[in-house]
């Protein structure tokens, strides 16, 4: 089965452009970063600053909102507006900002515990509502700030401080959760591939609607090398699948393998084997998230781990609908506070 691919057509988000050409340092605040040396967060911060400098976004038009956790320190280091809020609630505050201020570009920085445990409810709803905020979930599969308890993405049986003989719960798959909410933009990248991360940040920033990006991030203190099996430089070509819209799903150093549909999901086939014709072409714009879900479920070691934009569809945002309703109602009904105060009927006392 080869899926027909329409050209990638998306409405781009209105990006507020700075008056002057800015460089990475214009996006860096003067506050000293306080992550552990070697933490993956440093690279993500650098790529965010570079990525925004490439787009030349006006810093005063950006707001970074975070919750609680190591990743949530992120807004302090950006020379933008920002709020380091409370655990799990960043999507709510970000939604309020965006709905009150359409002119601002609003980012959410969150982690696996913040977004999927205490704030799980809000993540589902901000995505299904398609509020125009960009959500970056730094997934390190551990609680770092509280010093090493398991998180909702920790693997079953993982030994951590709060699970000394292994966890007894299955992990959540962040991409699968985002796709279940029918998010309009779903992507994955990782901390140690600066080019890929920057490109993904660009795409998320330009997306009109809620964008969800999972970034695999190494916590070298409490969960070192959590993703090393497939993100290490020497194995990544073999074990990662870099997705590009409209391109065949090929991977391997020689691009000698590809993904095809099987009876139960996806399977790996040889690019020069008899089933080569069945290799899927990636369609990020497919309205149904069905194939996207199959991709999200691909995990090491059985399957290659997908990276890049899995899904990007065009849909009106919550703000588009709300603004539209306000426009229409203003056209239909006259807004007159004095007559509103008088209500349906009044009487006169002489």
């Amino acid at each position: 089965m080869v899926l027909q691919t329409p050209p990638l057509q998306t409405v781009e988000s209105m990006i507020p452009i700075a008056e002057h050409d800015l460089s990475r340092k214009d996006y860096a605040s003067d506050i000293d970063t306080r992550w552990c040396p070697g933490c993956g967060d440093y690279s993500i911060l650098a790529q965010m600053q570079r990525g925004l400098a490439d787009l030349n976004v006006a810093p005063e038009k950006m707001v970074f909102v975070s919750g609680i956790g190591c990743s949530s320190r992120f807004p302090y280091y950006m020379n933008t507006y920002g709020m380091h809020s409370i655990h799990g609630r960043a999507p709510t505050i970000a939604s309020g900002i965006k709905l009150a201020r359409e002119d601002l570009m609003v980012f959410v920085i969150t982690g696996d515990g913040d977004a999927l445990s205490i704030g799980g409810n809000h993540l589902l709803h901000v995505l299904r509502r398609n509020v125009d905020v960009k959500i970056f979930l730094f997934n390190n599969r551990i609680y770092g700030l509280t010093k090493g308890q398991y998180s909702p993405t920790s693997e079953l049986g993982k030994v951590t401080k709060s699970s000394p003989v292994g966890t007894t719960e299955r992990p959540l798959n962040p991409l699968a959760v985002a796709l279940a909410s029918e998010a309009t933009f779903v992507a994955r990248s990782y901390d140690t591939d600066p080019q890929h991360l920057q490109a993904t940040i660009h795409r998320a920033a330009k997306h009109h609607g809620a964008a969800f990006v999972e970034i695999l991030q190494n916590c070298n203190i409490f969960n070192d090398r959590a993703f090393a099996d497939y993100t290490d430089r020497d194995v990544r070509d073999e074990r990662l699948l870099y997705l590009e819209h409209g391109e065949p799903m090929l991977f391997g150093e020689e691009k000698n393998k590809g993904l095809a549909v099987s009876a139960t999901g996806l399977r790996v086939v040889e690019a020069d084997g008899p089933d080569a014709g069945l290799i899927l072409t990636h369609d990020a714009t497919r309205p149904s998230p069905d194939v996207h879900q199959l991709l999200a479920r691909c995990s090491y070691p059985e399957m290659p781990v997908p990276m890049g934009v899995i899904r990007q569809v065009t849909a009106p945002t919550y703000g588009d609908y709300l603004d539209g309703q306000i426009e229409v109602q203003k056209f239909r009904n006259r807004a007159d506070v004095a007559s509103l105060l008088r209500g349906r009927s009044t009487w006169q006392v002489e």
Binding site: V65, M83, S85, R89, P91, T92, I93, A94, S95, G96, I97, K98, L99, A100, R101, L104, N121, H122, L124, H125, L322, Q325, I326, V328, Q329, K330, R332, N333, R334, A335, V337, L340
Partner: peptide, 27 residues
């Protein structure tokens, strides 16, 4: 809506106040 009112039926009480805080912060 003709008065420019933005109502937001939140997913829970926390989101209800979170969005209101966001709107207040936004001016």
């Amino acid at each position: 809506r003709e008065y420019g009112v933005r109502t937001f039926q939140a997913e829970d009480e926390i989101s209800a106040i979170g969005t209101a805080i966001g709107a207040a912060y936004g001016g």
